[in-house]
Design a protein around this nucleic acid. Sequence first.
RNA 1: GCCCCUAUCGUCUAGCCCGGUCCAGGACGCGGCCCUCUCAAGGCCGAGACGGGGGUUCAAAUCCCCCUAGGGGUACCA
Length: 464
Amino acid sequence: MSVPRVRFAPSPTGDLHVGGVRSALFNWLHARHTGGVFVLRVEDTDRARSTDEATNIILEGMAWIGMEPDEGPFFQSRRGDLYRARVQELLAAGGAYRCWCTKETIAEKRTAAEKTGTLFRYDRICRGRTEGPSPDAPFVLRAALPEEGEVVIEDVVKGRVVIRNDHLDDFILARADGSPVYNFTVVVDDIDMGITHVIRGDDHLNNTPKQMHLYRLLGAEPPVFAHLPMVHGPDGKKLGKRHGAASILQFRELGFLPDVMRGFLARLGWSHGDQEEFTTDELIQLFDLTGVRGSAAVFDHTKLEWLNGRRIREMAPMELLDLAQPFLERAGIPTDAAWLPRAVVAVQERAKTLVEIAEKLTMFVDRGPVTFDEKAQTKFLTDDSKPRLAALADALAAVETFTAPEVEAATSRFLEERELKMKHIGQPTRVALTGGTVSPSIYDVMEIFGREVTLDRLRSAAGD
RNA sequence: GCCCCUAUCGUCUAGCCCGGUCCAGGACGCGGCCCUCUCAAGGCCGAGACGGGGGUUCAAAUCCCCCUAGGGGUACCA
């Protein structure tokens, strides 16, 4: 058996959203799992809606998520010759015919059909015609489909789907200006590129019977089809722009890890028992098209965050720091600061995204006087606590090496002598050091700030 | 309207193909408790679902039919 060949075929008309990326992922996984070939094909036959910018977004998104194509990207806009050649063949063989009906006439008939509540189908009045109303009258090219019988799709995920041919119409292959249309180009390209498995969103399921006829008309064997369930937003509708973050690049900006995105997206419609987290290697090893569910899934942002947090926590600190680089820069954190490696450790178990890593790190940048959160100040910097902070500062001054364990030991001794509990000085110390009530362990904070800053802050909080 | 797809906790899902082991399992989220210098993390406990109705069968979440609901499509878009 020849190697499986799959493709991801987005159209560059806007953002590359996560639904599309999931389709790409399933194709990619199928290729990797089976030792097949993953092809990227940009479907830009609609010149009016396609933009270079959108193409770049697709390429960038695919690169970020780590699914570089084995072949391509190919652009349909550069394959006009192939489509023209195929359509001529079809015309000659009687698989296609010229249709001189105008858009307007068709539209009228459509509205009329809608009124009677029946399915609109082109009435095929041009099918027998050999010439138009005038020699230079514009025409489109239509597929000559059978009027009786039915098409059977043996879909890997949907099962057997049967469509009656009299529900199909002689759809357009090429526009009046000669440019080919989607349903034609996909088939031509999938044949030309030797695609063995068409794995795509189930919004294409309705196109499939038409395409199957085209395969036959073009003398080719149809591929295996696998129609994936849609990804929905929280409102249960097909995921789109108005669902907040939907574009894959947005998730990069939000500080999600590409690896986590892959694992999460794979679980939308596919699963392996109760396993929640997958490395990419596991995905490749375990993924199987036949395990894909048929029903749509809602994109659960909260679970994605949990997954991302888990991965961040288990990552090597230096690796994390490396990945967080751009986010630190954006947050104005000097990326060469000596305290960074230490601080990342203190912060990594508390962050769900790289953005949060940067946010939590910013408190260590400024070493000058603290700006107090008003509530925190009144609540914890009291007449009771202030003298203790001053005394603690004195106790800490004697610590030999100013590391978290040393500082902690010294603090414990201090507490013991005074018969105090940690809870008596914990929050006051935190407020003194950071100005607020939330931070990593105060011992970590002290080490990161160092002796000088720690004592200064402790004393100045005790002072006023 | 018409055509197609889908239907297990709020969400992602296991189980369904090969009926009994399911008074339906896991995870996110939620509530509580524990741990604790705060916040997280972690641990434990809890609430929470087979859309409805008919069949078939000794037995149905699992098989069949109908209904309902949701989604998708219905372009000289992809």
